[in-house]
Design a protein around this nucleic acid. Structure first.
Ligand code: FES
Ligand code: FES
Lengths: 159, 159
DNA sequence: TAAATACTTGACAGAAACAGTCGGTTATTA
DNA sequence: TAATAACCGACTGTTTCTGTCAAGTATTTA
C-alpha cells in the first residue's frame, strides 16, 4: 500500500543525477537515462514538469542539458514529488482539489491528516544534498522518525 | 500522492463501527452500511478479508453480525490496512513479494525504506481504541510525529 | 420444519490511473 | 547548415480500483 508512482521515483533519481553535476555544467537527458536506466522518452515527460515548476533549468543545443535552479541543499524531495504527483493526500477528502463536506462527523479524518502531515514533514525535511552525501542522514532518519528541524547527530559536518 | 484505496479507508471505518459495539453483541453489516455510508456488497468483501485474517469474528443467523476478536486497545490501524492493502511498500523494490537486485547501487533505496518505516511505525502505533476516544491521541500525533513508543505527553492517561 | 436473518463466495465489469511510446518541433552551437 | 539536445502533445496498452450481482450456506425462532 501507499505506493509511489514510477514518475515520482524516477523523478527523484533524475534529480539526483542532475545534482551530481551541480557546479560543473548541464547534465543531458541521455546521461540520466544511462545512469538510471530509464527511457529518454519517459524522462522528457518528467523533466518537463520539473522545469515548468522552476526546480530545474534547461539549456538547449550542443553542450546543453539540465541544471538545478538552486543549491542541492535547498531542494527537498517533498517539492520534487509534489510537482510530479501532487500533494500528499491519503484520502480524497484531504486532497485540496476535492475536499469533503462531512469532515466534522468523520472519525478518521484526523487520523489520515496526522499521517499525511507526518509524511509531508519527512519529505520536506529530506534534501537532495542528503542523497548526495551517501545516505548517512537518510539512514539516521530511518531509526529516528521525522527528518525535521530537530536534525540528526552529525548532520552539520557531512564529511 | 500516496493515496489509500477506499478498501482501506472503509475498512478502518467499519472496524471503528464494530469496535463501538465491543462488549455489547455483534454489529450487523447493515448497521455499518448505514452509519458509514458504504454499500453492503462492498462491505462484505472487506469484512470477509478481515475475518479470514482473524481480526474479527462473525456470528450467523438472526441477531448475528461481527465482533472484534480482541480488545480495541490491541488492534492497530496498521494491521487492518495490512490485511486490506498489503504491507507498506513505497516502491516495488520494497515490496516483499517483488524485491530488487540492484539494492546496493541504488541511491534512493534507503530513502524510501526510511519513509516506509516511518509510516509503518505510525500506523502500528495507532490503535482502534484511539479512534474511539475522540481522537485526542491522534490529534497529538499530528503535531508530534510518530505515534510510536516514545509516546505523546499525556498518552498514558487517556482520560 | 419453515421462514427470516445474516454472513459467504466467486465472478464480473466499467472507470480511472499508470507506464511508457512516438512523431514531429524548436533552439543552439560549431 | 548540420549536428545536438531539449520541447511538446497525443496516443495506447495494461493494471488497479471500485464497486455490483447472483447464488449459496449457516443459524435462530416460531
Ligand atoms: S469522509 Fe470526508 S473527511 Fe472523512
Ligand atoms: S532500484 Fe531496487 S532498490 Fe532502488
Amino acid at each position: 500500500m501507499l505506493k509511489l508512482s514510477t514518475k515520482g521515483q524516477y523523478g527523484v533519481r533524475a534529480m539526483y543525477e542532475i545534482a551530481k553535476g551541480f557546479g560543473s555544467g548541464p547534465v543531458t537527458i541521455k546521461r540520466i537515462s544511462e545512469e538510471q536506466h530509464v527511457s529518454i522518452a519517459y524522462l522528457e515527460q518528467i523533466l518537463n514538469k520539473l522545469r515548468r515548476a522552476g526546480i530545474i533549468k534547461s539549456v538547449k543545443g550542443p553542450g546543453g542539458g539540465y541544471i538545478l535552479s538552486r543549491d542541492p541543499k535547498q531542494i527537498t524531495i517533498g517539492e520534487i514529488l509534489n510537482e510530479l504527483e501532487g500533494p500528499v493526500a491519503i484520502t480524497s477528502c484531504l486532497d485540496p482539489k476535492e475536499g469533503c463536506v462531512r469532515v466534522d462527523s468523520c472519525v478518521t479524518h484526523l487520523l489520515w491528516k496526522a499521517l499525511g502531515d507526518n509524511i509531508k514533514r519527512f519529505l520536506d525535511g529530506m534534501k537532495l544534498q542528503d542523497l548526495l552525501q551517501g545516505d548517512q542522514r537518510v539512514a539516521a532518519a530511518s531509526k529516528n522518525g521525522s527528518a525535521g528541524k530537530r536534525g540528526v547527530a552529525g548532520q552539520r559536518e557531512g564529511r
